[in-house]
Amino acid sequence: MNGGFEARPDERCQRGLAVSYFVARGYDEERLRAALQAAWNHSLIEASETWGKRTVRRLVRQFRFEVRLGVRDGEISFLHRALASPEQRAAQSGVFESCLRTAIAAKEERT
């Protein structure tokens, strides 16, 4: 764990593109959503999907990345787009992780 989360890259079919983030003690999902939007000047396209009893929120920056919030309890899926360069992938991962730390801290403050 580093900063309250663990990042596990997908070693399979989406090798190099998908990373799963695990947050054992939870995070403030609305705070994370807002932080991500603010970090990218409110340009992320948002959508939601119903997976059984679960609602998954998707935030997309076209041709760069997609974030899926709520795929499992305490798990977030981050998918780099194929056209994102290695530099862009590193940068957007860094921004995402910074936003996630903020959302984890917000949750801890509340509890």
Partner: peptide, 22 residues
């Protein structure tokens, strides 16, 4: 019915990342 609500169309890059595969 549940799977029917998921979006299986290609994204803006024309790829369908689902179920951990393309």
């Amino acid at each position: 019915a549940a799977l029917g609500t998921l979006d299986f169309s290609g994204n803006e890059e024309g790829l369908v990342p689902r179920f951990g595969v393309m």
